[in-house]
Amino acid sequence: MDYFGLYNYWIVIFLMMTGFYIVISRDNLIKKLIGLNIFQTSVFLLFITMGKVKGGTAPIINHHFDTYSNPLPHVLILTAIVVGVATMAVGLSLVVRINEAYHTIEEDDIHLVEEEP
């Protein structure tokens, strides 16, 4: 078995798990969003890795080349990047609103304020 060709996938999974760890272990809401951002980018990297063809070039048709990488993952990720930034903007503006209502963006402190009668 050739495990060397799996190196990219493993690093992508490492990055994915780093983002996941930030999301579940940190209390700060902005830090959680940064973790989500890392997770999201790692999914982009996974798709782009799968689109690569050995000896291929960028999928722009030219008579000098005959091997191209797969354009379909590129298109999907192009859409995902833009949507990802849009959703992150909504998330961050929710955090700004939470900060105005509770005067904190730490999850624990928000729970404390909620429990107060």
Partner: peptide
């Protein structure tokens, strides 16, 4: 490096 030039362009500008 992985031939996804359009994606790289968008990621650098937007991401």
């Amino acid at each position: 490096a992985l031939d996804a030039v359009d994606v790289a362009f968008t990621e650098a500008a937007v991401g």
